[in-house]
Design a protein around this nucleic acid. Structure first.
Lengths: 150, 150
DNA sequence: ACAAATCCCGAGTGTTTTGATAAGATTTGT
DNA sequence: ACAAATCTTATCAAAACACTCGGGATTTGT
């Protein structure tokens, strides 16, 4: 029941982009340095985010990435789903195309996993990047609020 | 964010034991057959459950396993924690000995993972084996309510 | 006493996932 | 033209996962 680094690093990067919103394109290199992530690895992760429209890329010198839409409209769940796949503790209750078995309707544990899935989704979909930035500002007014760890 | 087969199979087995409560020791072989799990693999899983006191073993011919205490006092969360480790989407919010980083107090995402952890725990700790047996009885009065899939 | 049933334990194995690295191609501002 | 970036593809080592196997130890029915 662990998140992989994909989701953790990806959310770090998205938060970093939200913090630097309005300052023009942010290079992968600067994100990787601030968040202490392998640049090449982050490249793979952000490719997925780009395809999903959560970030836009600007190629060439002074290029980089910007958020695909306002921070208030990007939920943590959106980011996690792109990087980790549909939220589900087991495949038979996957948010999209669940691999149901024949007896799914009579399966006691299935209902348990559904409840787990829904409670996770509810938490992740109730928080936006904007919320995160505001929380960070509250936590520490002085310091630049990079996340050192996820 | 997936459960491994350890948690799934283990809960299957515990449910099976709860269903057959009061019929004497249940052999691993019969559980493995009903739940369609590798017997040797299940052996490993149940070893952990035994050490945790969730099941008791009866050695020798006609031996097997029985629940360590009443089904009403065994929560799904108890079983999952034994087989999958402490509930936590990331290590820094682990239920026991979290590997905190220096900046944990200023980490925005940490609070998110805490909320996720708590919502999962709440679901898993609100359901007991007794609840599962009752649900199964409700779902299907006629058939023996084995779980065919988790 | 003996054999069958059953639990107990540790080691080995193939596959998949994870997390990263490397090399080169493409695009663009200066 | 050049340097700074992104983009694409390929490769790879380590860990986790899901078993599998072999051999003991213990108890019971006959």
């Amino acid at each position: 029941m662990k998140l992989s680094t994909r989701g953790r690093y990806g959310l770090k990067a998205m938060f970093d982009l939200a913090v630097h919103m309005g300052e023009g394109p942010v290079s992968l290199k600067s994100i990787a340095e601030r968040q202490d992530i392998s640049e090449h690895y982050l490249e793979q992760l952000i490719a997925g985010l780009r395809k999903a429209g959560l970030v836009k890329s600007v190629r060439g010198a002074q290029g980089g990435y910007v958020l695909g839409r306002e921070p208030a409209k990007i939920r943590v769940g959106d980011v996690i789903r792109v990087l980790e796949g549909p939220i589900a503790p087991v495949d038979c209750v996957s948010e999209e195309d669940p691999e149901c078995c024949a007896k799914a309707e009579h399966c006691v544990t299935r209902t348990i996993w559904e409840k787990v899935r829904d409670s996770i989704s509810e938490v992740l979909d109730s928080i936006t990047l904007e919320d995160m930035v505001k929380d960070a500002e509250k936590m520490d007014k002085e310091r630049k609020y990079y996340m050192y760890y996820i």
